[in-house]
Simulated assay, not measured.
Amino acid sequence: MKAMQKGFTLIELMIVVAIIGILAAIAIPQYQDYTARAAVNRLNGEISALRTAVEDALARGQTPGNAQDLGFTSSTLIDSAAPASGRPTVSIDAGGEVTISATMAGSSPAPVRGAVIAWSRAATGVWSCTITRPNPVGGWKDSFAPSGCTVQ
């Protein structure tokens, strides 16, 4: 009686390793893009939540204060060092335009680090979102921006 062969041959193992390598070469860049897009969307959601607090302050006849006064604690995607301290900036100009902005830093992925997300409220009450690309653009893709935000 012949003994049955057990296990895999070297060529079979090499084929499996080659397939895994090809899949990894495709998957890793896609994963990095997804994490960068998720970070931009997360910070956009965090700072856009301040729009309600700004509207409330304006409806009460008050001038919107800083992000902490409006109830924002901090974000790991914003630089934790002063003056940002993990919070976006809220400013109002003489014409009544309010701007909420944050620069991506901290634990932000490298391709989006340095991008500035800003929500601006015109005196008419219309909000708009703008994202300024990081300088230098190190891997930034316009597809990272959420729909409805313009990229500059």
Rank of each mutant, 00 (worst) to 15 (best):
V116L: 09
A82W: 11
A24T: 06
G65H: 02
S107H: 13
Y31F: 15
D93P: 02
A24P: 05
G95R: 09
I26C: 13
S74A: 14
A38M: 14
A81L: 12
D93F: 08
S91M: 12
E97V: 12
D69S: 12
R87G: 02
D79V: 01
A27T: 12
Y34D: 08
I100H: 01
A105D: 06
A118K: 03
T76A: 15
S80L: 10
A49F: 07
A94E: 15
G114M: 01
P88I: 06
V17Y: 14
I117T: 00
N44R: 08
V116N: 06
V112S: 03
L77F: 02
N41A: 12
S85F: 09
T89I: 08
Q30N: 14
A115Q: 01
L58Y: 06
R51Q: 13
G96C: 10
I20H: 10
V112D: 02
M14G: 06
M104K: 00
G45T: 03
G71H: 03
G114E: 00
Y31H: 13
V116I: 12
A105N: 07
V98G: 01
S108W: 04
A49T: 07
L50F: 04
S75K: 05
V16K: 09
E46M: 04
Q68S: 14
I100K: 01
G86K: 05
G95C: 10
A82G: 14
P64W: 02
I22K: 07
A82C: 13
A115F: 01
S85T: 11
G96Q: 08
S85A: 12
A39L: 01
A102S: 08
R87C: 00
A38P: 11
Q62A: 12
S107R: 15
A118G: 09
D69W: 13
R87V: 02
V90T: 00
R51Y: 07
G86P: 00
S107D: 15
N41Q: 14
E55L: 03
L13K: 09
T99G: 10
A105M: 06
I78H: 04
V54K: 03
I47H: 00
